[in-house]
């Protein structure tokens, strides 16, 4: 059976006054039910734009989307707006970075969950919908749901708000949950709880999860697969174990060495990636990462002239888009470590 979510050569472009923004430029991946894909990258790498494209949330008048985004076999890119709307919230749901701004400040948490349920269950009565909302609040670990259901988002703590957001997203038992930086706005201690909750709910609901984050720690906790994005393209893609333990792309090395580890040497310097993310209107030629890459092969090399494709490594463990020969990358990885 085909994976529940299949994205093929997705390209998203916005036309702005300054030129065409190639926010996503040929991304492909697949996620099955019960599995979690972590999409990692800096801001502007195209990870959020990818997720919004799957949800069909881009303004169609301003956005040019090509490629395919199959959700349960239906291509969201090709479907009309109304058909995508009916998928949203029912077959695919999304939770956002800041639950305080993502929940409507003027409605109670319960009312917002009930609304989400009744859009897709118009036959459900008020009482049934409320009961469902109560159940969901309980399942995401909100204490005293009967009292909490009639409170407003501002009366919740950050972690509780995100739980409520998750309850709202899962109220219709979606097969795909997209979590866009779900823990970024939360305290570190709460982060782990939310990630545990997501993992637990995934086991229960058996949904596919796409987790968007810039935090490799988060990815290592919950993701089965990892896609590293840079400049709107995938640069490394494989199982979480492989990508995090034996990364083959210099950008992934950079990401990893800019994160402190608990188990490593506490005095070891964090190594930031020099430079800043590229402009998506005017991407560097060749490999978009080459101006920031300390291993690039020189001014006239393929790094500067040719866009690298994601190619499988020799043992097939992951796919990497880099012009460096694999043997060289492997030996360098030892040095990086």
């Amino acid at each position: 059976m085909a994976p529940y979510v299949e994205v093929r050569d997705l390209r998203v472009r916005f036309t702005t006054e300054d030129g065409v923004v190639r926010a996503v430029d040929g991304v492909s991946f697949a996620v099955d039910r019960g599995h979690t894909l972590g999409i990692v990258g800096e801001s502007g790498s195209g990870k959020s734009v990818t997720s919004l494209a799957i949800m069909g949330l881009h303004d169609r008048r301003r956005t040019n989307i090509t490629g395919q985004a199959l959700v349960g076999g239906r291509d969201v890119v090709a479907l009309d707006e109304e058909a995508v709307r009916r998928l949203r919230g029912r077959d695919m749901a999304m939770i956002f970075q800041d639950p305080l701004s993502a929940l409507h400040p003027y409605y109670t948490v319960g009312r917002q969950i009930i609304e989400a349920y009744r859009i897709h269950h118009p036959e459900a009565g008020k009482r049934e919908a409320r009961q469902r909302a109560l159940d969901m609040l309980g399942r995401v670990g909100i204490p005293q749901p009967a009292r909490r259901i009639d409170q407003y988002p501002h009366e919740f703590s950050g972690g509780m708000r995100q739980r409520a957001m998750i309850a709202m997203a899962l109220v219709n038992d979606p097969d795909l949950l997209i979590a866009d930086e779900p823990t970024t706005a939360l305290d570190v201690t709460v982060q782990a709880q939310i990630l545990d909750l997501l993992a637990g709910l995934q086991a229960e609901f058996h949904s596919a999860i796409i987790l968007i984050t810039h935090d490799l720690g988060v990815v290592s906790q919950v993701a089965d697969q990892v896609l590293v994005m840079y400049g709107g393209r995938g640069v490394e893609h494989g199982s979480a174990a492989r990508v995090l333990r034996e990364p083959q792309h210099p950008y992934t090395w950079g990401l990893l060495s800019s994160v402190p580890t608990l188990h490593g040497d506490a005095d070891a310097d964090l190594v930031p990636i020099k430079g800043s993310p590229p402009s998506l209107i005017n991407l560097p030629s060749g490999c978009a990462f080459h101006p920031r890459c300390r291993y690039q092969l020189g001014p006239a090399s393929p790094c500067v002239t040719t866009v690298p494709e994601l190619e499988p490594t020799r043992d097939g463990g992951q796919r990497v888009a880099c012009h460096l020969p694999e043997t060289q990358r492997r030996s360098m990885l030892e040095v990086v470590r």
Partner: peptide, 9 residues
């Protein structure tokens, strides 16, 4: 955006 993500018309 959340309201749209819910599938609200």
């Amino acid at each position: 955006r959340t309201a749209r993500a819910k599938g609200l018309p």
